[in-house]
Design a protein around this nucleic acid. Structure first.
Lengths: 155, 155
DNA sequence: GCCTAGTTTTGATTCACTCAAAAGAGCGAT
DNA sequence: ATCGCTCTTTTGAGTGAATCAAAACTAGGC
């Protein structure tokens, strides 16, 4: 990534999306830029560090507005709270570590519009395919290898 | 599907999975057999019709036990409560209607183990790929076609 | 028929998020 | 620079889905 296509400054991005520029929005945008897959409460924590008076509700509002405006995307891996990311519009997917919960991006498997075609026509008019991979992240995989097959009865 | 591989009777299936056979479990199994993608509260409702004294908590217990025992699977489309299905072990996927929420099964796109290989090696040791398609079900697609492009300002 | 581990009931509690009303602040027009 | 309209944020309450915990019950091996 060159200096040219660096992520836009918060203010430009927000205004460009048709939203008013406010302190909580700027702070939330910056937080998202630094935390690629963050929960609302993590964003909240970061925002508070900059603007102490901010409410959690404001963060939910801001994140919801970002999503509606197409500035951010919300993903929701099963059994976890929603996560927000600034990377939008490129149809990428995610891997979630089944052990520690870490989430990484995965570029689209099959060219640009991936598994948009189910094997058989189902009658559904399909708009998007969402792919989530589940597995062990490098760290957890290494940890798993360095000890005998886990025995659930013994910590 | 022939008479031969019809879904096993509740009792056989439950005992076969190493669980004790109880009335709530039998009723929940039967409910699942009749509702391919049901929420806990839908199962609850059906179970109650058979065994009036059953508690919602019992249904959650039963469903959790079924999932742990490999008898059932729990899926969780974004923004919806969890859904349970008896179809397990064949790695199929789902389509969710963005308009009415209807969920259908989709057979695996690429042979047996589908998109198990992300484009680039990410260092994750991937175990499963979960694919969710979002689109309009036949009914909602037809309804959308028979009226002008929706105008959000006018009901 | 007992006994015990596994189940169910009852009731409280959590978490992630949403709703609503009142107070406040951007920003385009004057 | 100020005004004013609309959009934002705060404050505080409320929701649905699910989980936790302890006491009462029961399936099924002996």
């Amino acid at each position: 990534m060159t200096a040219h296509d660096a992520p836009p400054l918060a203010e430009e991005a927000i205004r460009g999306a048709g939203l008013r520029v406010t302190a909580p929005r700027r702070a939330a945008y910056d937080a998202l830029a630094g935390l690629p897959h963050a929960r609302a409460d993590e964003i909240f924590e970061r925002v508070r560090a900059t603007i102490p008076g901010t409410s959690l509700q404001a963060v939910y509002n801001v994140l919801g507005d970002f999503v509606d405006a197409g500035l951010a995307r919300r993903i929701e891996p099963s059994g976890q709270p929603g996560l927000f990311e600034l990377r939008v519009g490129d149809n990428h997917h995610h891997v979630v570590c089944t052990s520690c919960g870490r989430v990484d991006d995965i570029d689209c498997i099959v060219g640009e519009a991936p598994c948009l075609h189910p094997a058989h026509d189902t009658g559904f008019r399909i708009q998007v395919a969402e792919v989530t991979f589940w597995g062990l992240c490098p760290d957890c995989a290494a940890a798993a290898d360095s000890r005998p097959p886990s025995d659930p009865d013994r910590p």
